[in-house]
Design a protein around this nucleic acid. Sequence first.
DNA 1: CTGAAAGCGCTTACAG
DNA 2: CTGAAAGCGCTTACAG
Lengths: 346, 346
Amino acid sequence: MASRGKATILDIARKAGVSKSTVSLVLQGSTLIRPGTASRVRKAIEEVGYVYNRGAANLRKAHSNVVGMVINDLTNPFFAELAVGMERVFQSAGIVPFIANTAENPVRQGEVLKSLLEQGVSGLIVSPAHGTLPDAFERIRSGGTPIIFVMRRLAESRVPVVAPDNPWGAFLATSHLIGKGHRRIAFLGGFPDMVVYHERVGGYREALAAHGIAAAEALIIQGDTNRKGGMSAIETALAFNPAPTAAMCFNDAVAFGAMTGLRKRGMEPGGDFAIVGFDDVAEAQHYMPPLTSVAVDTAGLGERAAHMMLNMIRAGTTRAGNHIGAISLIVRDSCGPDVTETRRSA
Amino acid sequence: MASRGKATILDIARKAGVSKSTVSLVLQGSTLIRPGTASRVRKAIEEVGYVYNRGAANLRKAHSNVVGMVINDLTNPFFAELAVGMERVFQSAGIVPFIANTAENPVRQGEVLKSLLEQGVSGLIVSPAHGTLPDAFERIRSGGTPIIFVMRRLAESRVPVVAPDNPWGAFLATSHLIGKGHRRIAFLGGFPDMVVYHERVGGYREALAAHGIAAAEALIIQGDTNRKGGMSAIETALAFNPAPTAAMCFNDAVAFGAMTGLRKRGMEPGGDFAIVGFDDVAEAQHYMPPLTSVAVDTAGLGERAAHMMLNMIRAGTTRAGNHIGAISLIVRDSCGPDVTETRRSA
DNA sequence: CTGAAAGCGCTTACAG
DNA sequence: CTGAAAGCGCTTACAG
């Protein structure tokens, strides 16, 4: 029954024969109100088809129940899953999570941030877009709004971050390749303006060093962190002489692209060339061949970030410790059998 | 410089030596204010680090600038892309779009809807979760809030919908298979409680009928509309004797799953068995083999829905015509060469 | 061109 | 246990 305009607590009050204070109190589930009165009010609420005006409430209360999640690329299942994981915990904490996408565009990110702030969010979790400058976030933070970075961090920023153990993941993955007998191992994808890039390349380098292999700078090939980037990176890698026999990829998307690139050249991933990815997206296990990858527990990281935010909001602080999530190497078929046997005996 | 608490227009007014009405007017870009005064005010706005309180404004204006997009599965790139397409047009229309995920869960959907309504959204675009009952939406709609369904529709609902031409898409795809010489063609995935299912199966049936082929009911195999569903559906299909030689899949996810299932049985998609998908997700062209699929122009449909919503909000109406988007069959390699030649000559 | 006043729909002390 | 009053931060007629 929609009357003209929306019903307010005043309509309910009139209908139930009480004051609007009383209505507000039952709306908040206060135990002050006598059960009889409360149920009379609740009945009236039903009858007028009331919908709570949270904006009005927040205005008065001076703190909102909404948080913003700003994601660099929602069409990437990896980040979508992250967002969904966070959403779940907020939802069940009675917080309204707003998901916004920046499409890896800093300008867009600025707009999104502005409108979230105007909306009165009480916290922000963000996976910053490429090329983001730290100062915008520092300003928000010094304004008192808690912020957490997830998955990505900014070089000169004191914003707390929740991220996987990138160096260790890359170290493990590269060591796996070395263990299979590979010596000329490329690193594919990513750009030096991302902190993650340095972390992963760092792990890769350490693994090589730990096994006494000199890193060939030319085999560290930068590129977009998506399929297309992987396809062109593998092209570049294969052009070298002697060509690498394996590649550690920046992420799974790059790995998928690299596999396609390999096939285009008539090579079989897992057979003629070993590939390892990073992220372990859902698709990895269904790929042909199934992709060996570094699992980062996306959902877990998302939940962790959400809980951290909840705590920060409760405590009224903008600071928190970083959280570096454990990773694990999931071995599947994309690295094939040990090269030591197949190649050396040839 | 954040002072204690947030700065309000009153702080600005004091600083600029004007009334708060004047501040409000320059905030709204009114031409009534003398340029000199306006710039003085703008300077003060900068100085106090003011952030606009949209909630307070909306409370007074009685209409908000936020719309809600409720999506059944954000981790499915198809829907993520849809959401992102809509977001883009809202953003540039000065509307704040909130993306919410229901994870295909009607209960969750109910919660999401409630909180969006409490937030005062002036419109809702939704891709309903499986098992959704129409009445919740009818109630919202009769309350005056415009709603549009995208991609999916509800059987007994008068909510306007924006969706691709499903019957025609399935017709085209099935006809393509028939044109290649296939006669035993399965339909894989989906459930009869989805309107889309009937539309697509309908197109499939019509194509068979148009070519004088009797539809084998047993070859219409229901299942989840994801990879897993595709894997088990193809298993079932292959168990029949005589087995089908081709399959029209409910969507690309099912098609990918079916391909994996085929390989598990030692069959090669595109070689030993023809597969066609629906949606033409980004991944389709990079798959091995590249997937023949029905392209639905996801982003375009999203933009269309967003524009429709913008118009409905402006016009203050909850009704609008449906929009059925054109589709096109993208032929790639997953249907291989014509069966007439390869099989018959064998 | 600018200001004073009322009001949007709530919540929160404060009385009683 | 319940009501009257003030106020959150804006916008919008209405004067001047």
